[in-house]
Computed example of a mutant assay.
Amino acid sequence: MTLKDKALELFVGLCLLIVVACDAGNSKKEEKAENGFMQEGNGKKKDKDTPTEGFTVINTYELFKLSKMDKGDVTESSGLEQTADGNYWTHGDGGNEAELLKISPDGELLQKVIITGAKNKDWEDLTRGENGYLYIGDFGNNENTRDSLEILKIDEKNNRNVGTIRFAYADQNDFPPAPEKMNFDCEGFFYHNNAFYLFTKNRGTDRWVKLYKVLDQPGAQQKVSPIDSLQINTEITAADISPDGKRIALLGDGWVYLFEIASPEQVFKGTKQQIKLEKTGQAEGLIFTSNTDMLISNEAGKLFQLKAK
């Protein structure tokens, strides 16, 4: 065998070793994915199926599939809120029209409304104030690059934006921040006592959910700082407060996180429970329909009822 042949044989052997090593690595990654594990950027494992520390898993709720919206009528359901006539508003997020879609509990499209004076930069959630106005959270920030976020105040009778609440996060200095610090996206909020309570969707690595309070004051931009934070295993995609103001629900990937509260500012200090959701897909919308029961929607347009036993 010539020196050239020996070199070729050594090269081929080395390539085979690399291929085997890569296959073994991929198999381990696939095994982790199948078991519900993902690898975080800081080397720690996170498991969305594992209950969050400090929460009690409860089985006092039942999940029912209620209906499905027609994909031709509703391309996406990102947020939910009740209408005055017992139906529901929903909407798409960024890239969709500035419109609200009224749907029945059966998933039927009843009305499509263009909101005058509004633009859908990245609508993520809906809420209703005690004053009767509907509010749209235009604060989607997937890339953490927006330095001005908005909440739109909607007059339902005239289908108009009658006031824009502008805000920015006081603790964000870089647009975008480093990947591990990308915690300036939001998909869930609610209204209580003339203020909005926003919960971040953490796209970084430390799993902290931050709580911000924004006043219902259209006009000049508000600079808001987090008033509390809590580590939760999954990303938060919706939030609501019960009609009696005693419970807050956060929607995560495969879970609803339920808090018994004295006030929204103290939400993370209240009793913490979580409810396992089965086969809801990419759930994006959640509202209380009573002081205990909830309605959930996913991006594919399916509606689910989460009902206390």
Results as ranks from 00 to 15, higher is better:
M38N: 10
N35G: 06
F37T: 07
A33C: 01
K45R: 06
A21W: 02
G36N: 06
E31W: 03
K44Q: 12
G41S: 00
K28H: 08
E34R: 08
F37E: 15
M38D: 02
A24N: 03
K44R: 09
G41V: 01
V19Y: 04
A33G: 02
K44P: 00
G36D: 06
K29Y: 03
K44N: 15
K32Y: 04
V19C: 07
G43D: 08
G43S: 09
V20K: 14
G36Y: 11
M38E: 08
A24P: 02
Q39T: 15
M38R: 14
E30V: 06
G36T: 08
S27Y: 08
D23K: 10
E30W: 03
K28F: 05
G43Q: 12
E30I: 04
K46G: 00
K45Q: 11
K48Y: 13
K46I: 14
G43I: 13
A21G: 05
A24S: 07
K28P: 01
K48M: 09
K44M: 13
G25N: 10
M38I: 12
N26I: 09
F37Y: 15
K45C: 11
A33H: 12
N35S: 09
D47I: 04
K46F: 03
M38W: 13
G36I: 13
V19P: 02
A21R: 05
V20L: 15
G36P: 04
K44L: 11
K46Q: 01
K45L: 15
E30S: 13
M38P: 00
G41A: 00
K28A: 10
K29C: 04
A21E: 07
D47L: 02
Q39S: 14
K44Y: 10
E34I: 01
K45T: 14
K45F: 12
K46P: 01
E30N: 03
A33V: 06
C22A: 10
G41P: 01
N26F: 04
S27N: 08
N42Y: 05
D23R: 07
S27C: 06
K45Y: 12
G41C: 02
M38V: 12
A21S: 07
N35A: 15
D47R: 05
C22R: 05
N26L: 01
V20N: 02
A24D: 04
E40N: 13
D47Y: 00
C22D: 10
K45W: 14
V20G: 06
V20I: 15
E40V: 12
K45N: 09
K48G: 15
G41L: 07
K32S: 05
K46V: 12
D23M: 06
M38Q: 12
V19H: 00
K29D: 06
K48F: 14
C22K: 03
E30T: 08
F37A: 06
E40K: 15
K29M: 08
A21T: 12
M38F: 13
Q39M: 12
D47N: 15
M38C: 05
K28N: 05
N26S: 02
V20F: 13
K45I: 07
K28E: 03
K46S: 00
E31K: 11
M38T: 14
E31F: 02
A33N: 13
G41Q: 03
N35P: 02
K32I: 00
E34P: 01
K45S: 15
K44F: 12
N35V: 02
D47C: 10
